[in-house]
Nucleic acid binder design. Structure first.
Lengths: 158, 158
DNA sequence: AAAAATTTGTTGCATTTACAACAATATTAT
DNA sequence: ATAATATTGTTGTAAATGCAACAAATTTTT
């Protein structure tokens, strides 16, 4: 007798899509609220971008866009802001024989990043207090597998 | 000796936030692309709303907003559209002695919903093919637990 | 009883976002 | 060699989103 695979989605609010989206939204909102409350001088998106640059030295804009989950246009705009604040520097370089704009974090940016990380540490510690490191790790692995399995079906225009 | 709990976040792209957001984004984009490709006459958000109404008869706008993950304003706008298409009806009722606008799906809406579900079935089946029902279920449970644990820290304004 | 706060939905606006079009350059195909 | 395609970043624009302000009604507080 053949095992019948039930459909993965019956109704939206029972689906994996709903759980994923709601959890992600909640996390994002929490981040935004913490940033607003602490009055740090950066939006959470700017902080995320700065952090990502700090551990991806010499990355180009397009590759950065993929990491921070924004399109090229908006990535450029965020970088304009960070550059204007003197937190990053941008320079022309080549990648695969093509001209690209690469960037790196400045001394000032590094200090800002350190400062913000310290200020936020305690706030974020609360949010995952009831989860062990292992549980979080397992969840991340599961999400990555899930993502990999659908990645091929999605046309990314970045 | 005390066990030292490592911080849950070192860098954004290594964090659970990143994995959640990227997975959710990918899923949403896939949904949008399928809807656009199949030319179904509804956006994916409208479909999701219609589906949610269909299994929550007599729900009011605010409660619906929480389910479809939009704020009250945008939920109202989506409902205007669906009502304009004749897929739902809206009526005044009371809830806790307060006047609210409730809604229900129409015959036409039900037919549309059925039609779209059939058309999309095959497309979504592919995307989770490499996952067993049990794995998906486990992931959903994990996400729900995670969500519950942070829910209290987030101020929802809906 | 009066005042303050809460619930619900709508309107308007400012921000964010996505997407297409473009320019410049390099690679690949014919 | 020429044309077609691909990569990268910017600009412009339309749509989506969130948020604050408002109105109407009810509940809670004083």
């Amino acid at each position: 007798m053949q095992k019948i695979q039930k459909l993965p989605v019956k109704h939206f609010t029972d689906s994996i899509y709903y759980d994923l989206e709601q959890t992600a939204r909640l996390m994002k909102k929490l981040g935004n609220q913490v940033f607003e409350k602490l009055n740090l001088g950066l939006t959470s998106d700017e902080y995320i971008t700065l952090d990502t640059i700090s551990c991806n030295a010499g990355i180009c804009q397009r590759d950065l866009a993929k990491l921070i989950l924004k399109d090229r246009a908006n990535t450029g705009r965020i970088l304009d802001t960070l550059e204007g604040m003197g937190l990053i520097t941008r320079f022309i370089d080549t990648k695969n024989n093509r001209l690209v704009r690469k960037m790196g974090i400045t001394e000032k940016g590094l200090k800002k990043l350190q400062e913000l990380s310290n200020k936020m540490e305690v706030h974020f510690r609360n949010t995952t207090a009831s989860f062990s490191e292992e549980e979080i790790e397992a969840l991340q692995q599961s999400l990555k597998r899930f993502r990999n399995s659908i990645e091929e079906f999605v046309k990314m225009n970045i």
